[in-house]
């Protein structure tokens, strides 16, 4: 297939995934800030939301302070933010339009419908009710798109490249949210913070839609090191780093199989995957969770570059 087509499919998936992630962290933050200070501490949640969204540099160029108003606007509709939800959805649709022939009718309907609906929201949201409706809608749109891709696409390179986009983006998002909150996840934190952090951990789980999953996996109350374990190593957790890399590997292998040759992207992904598989949580904590996540984010970005160089340019 055309490199440009693969590139568009890959980015289409990435933008949709990113839009959903932004909606989820906004949702989680809103819940946190609705709790009494005694439950969550005095840290500025909106500040850490900007960090989690990975757009702090851009944000502080236009805003002095992270407040509910400035952050929600910046992450949803702002035209100052090149990765606001609105831009993500618009870019997703622009990519979709450029490769219409590679999409199934259902995928096109999903993304085009989302875009038409987005225009109804105009330039912003007028009330809190509308805001939470909007966040739910973004998540539903992403599910609809993802579901239609999963159910209707031929299992060929077009599908594999679009899945690569999903998982590279998802791995980045999960690693980022963990990294911003890593200090809350250290094992000795329980003694320091105690139950105070319980809602913070829940918020992390909620923002990657893993709260219920957590209980099913551990049948235990929310403990920080288990949260880290779930989101980094657990393969059955679809947003964990390990699970993302299992999927990245699977899709890259399918491409290599169809094309009859391996390349740097396959080799790099396999290294990262092996490292994750051979890790234990206590080892990660000993080496430093923050360092581990930082390295992972760098590796994941390098893999994205390798994929681009090998296939998309």
């Amino acid at each position: 297939m055309l490199s440009r087509t693969a590139d568009n499919l890959y980015w289409l998936s990435r933008y949709i995934e990113r839009a959903e992630y932004l909606a989820r962290i906004l949702d989680a933050t809103q819940r946190l800030t609705a709790l009494p200070l005694a439950y969550v501490g005095t840290s500025n949640e909106w500040e850490s939301t900007v960090l989690t969204a990975g757009c702090a540099a851009g944000f502080y160029k236009v805003h002095k302070e992270a407040t509910e108003d400035t952050v929600t606007d910046f992450l949803t509709f702002s035209s100052d933010n090149p990765s606001s939800i609105r831009f993500c959805l618009e870019l997703a649709r622009a990519n979709a339009r450029a490769v219409r022939t590679a999409l199934t009718k259902e995928m096109w309907d999903a993304i085009n419908g989302t875009w038409l609906e987005l225009k109804r929201y105009g330039n912003g949201l007028s009330s809190r009710e509308e805001f939470s409706r909007f966040l739910r809608w973004v998540q539903e749109s992403s599910l609809r798109f993802d579901g239609s891709a999963y159910r209707t696409m031929l299992r060929n390179d077009a599908y594999w490249f679009s899945r690569l986009g999903v998982y590279v983006e998802r791995a980045d998002n999960t690693a980022r949210i963990l990294d911003v909150k890593y200090h809350l996840l250290l094992p000795d934190n329980e003694r320091v913070g105690g139950a105070l952090d319980y809602f913070q951990w829940s918020a992390i789980l909620r923002s990657v839609s893993a709260l219920t999953a957590y209980h099913w996996v551990y049948r235990d109350s929310v403990k920080p090191w288990l949260v880290a374990d779930l989101l980094i190593l657990r393969e059955e957790m679809p947003r964990s780093l390990n699970s993302c890399y299992e999927a990245i590997m699977r899709n890259l292998d399918s491409i290599a199989g169809a094309y009859g040759r391996q390349g740097p992207a396959q080799r790099q992904a396999r290294e990262i995957r092996n490292r994750l598989q051979n890790s234990r949580m206590d080892g990660i904590f000993q080496r430093g969770l923050h360092e581990f996540l930082g390295e992972f984010i760098t590796d994941n970005n390098q893999l994205a570059t390798a994929i681009a160089e090998q296939f998309l340019l």
Binding site: M1, L2, S3, R4, A6, D157, F161, I255, Y259, F311, L312, L313
Partner: peptide, 9 residues
């Protein structure tokens, strides 16, 4: 003097 397209392969 031959036209090519850039593909993933």
């Amino acid at each position: 003097e031959i036209v090519y397209m850039r593909t993933t392969q």
